[in-house]
Nucleic acid binder design. Structure first.
Lengths: 140, 140
DNA sequence: TAAAAATTTGTTATATTATAACACTATACT
DNA sequence: AGTATAGTGTTATAATATAACAAATTTTTA
């Protein structure tokens, strides 16, 4: 079907599997401690798998958190073109899929007319659920 | 004049001064080793100054590089509303000041209608000077 | 299909980035 | 003057990431 998808190696599968099971982004050393029972012993094994998974677009790095999250955009396959919203309170991260915004970013040129290969955009705010909790805590 | 500007402390001035002298973003430990002669001895002193300078918008953190750069937008005073272009080759970083893009980002709402407090956008590409060098190296 | 090339693995050690905790000092506020 | 707030200096350590090397595996291609 998908010509691009060379099958992943053992460690890459293990790491991807763990990341995909998590709703929130996960940290490298959290991945490590959670997959040690599967035979991954040391940081380089995790970081190598992460590098590869990022390169093929299966996961993204959340720069402001040093954490990693599965790509939610069906087989986007594009690393380094990412938009996230991040809750300052619970730190949950959602990948944003907004065609109009994508177009704005894709079409952006700087003053020199430079065309960019990629971008990373992180929005910060308070998610709905956390906002509701804050309101709850106010009335007492 | 500017009611907001409480004067900076000694360490904050030293750190800001060093960052402003550099065209490229600087790393925390590079700051440290460069200001030791001025009496800053340990990482926490640097990181505290960085935190404060970020909070008041004098500098910004370049998330993908773990580095710090002076704000180029005259007294923008707004932390966490940043747009950078980053050269993949020489790693030079320019702060982008594009009103139309700012408006797009400011006005952006996610599906839930969440309003965001801030954002960080990093564009990646090859700067003009590096592109020219690459062309130079091709013809031989 | 055998040899060469490229990728992945496992491992140890170490580099880099960042914060916790504590006692103390300076500055601003009323 | 007294208290609150912010900043300092210090030691120790936590958290994140990579270098380097030998071996095994998979992919390519001749």
């Amino acid at each position: 079907m998908d010509k691009k998808s060379k099958s992943l190696s053992k460690n890459q599968k293990i790491v991807l599997d763990f990341i995909q099971k998590n709703k929130k982004p996960v940290k490298a050393y959290s991945i490590l401690s959670n997959v040690q029972k599967k035979g991954i012993n040391a940081p380089p094994q995790v970081y190598r798998a992460l590098d590869k998974l990022i390169k093929i677009g299966k996961i993204h790095r959340v720069e402001s958190q040093n954490s990693f999250v599965a790509c939610k955009i069906s087989n986007c396959g594009t690393p380094h073109k990412t938009v996230f919203s991040i809750c300052n309170s619970c730190e949950i991260v959602s990948e944003i899929n907004d065609p109009k915004l994508f177009k704005n970013l894709k079409d952006f040129r700087d003053k020199d007319g430079t065309v960019f290969d990629g971008y990373n955009l992180e929005f910060f705010g308070t998610c709905k659920s956390c906002k509701n909790k804050q309101i709850e805590n106010t009335k007492h």
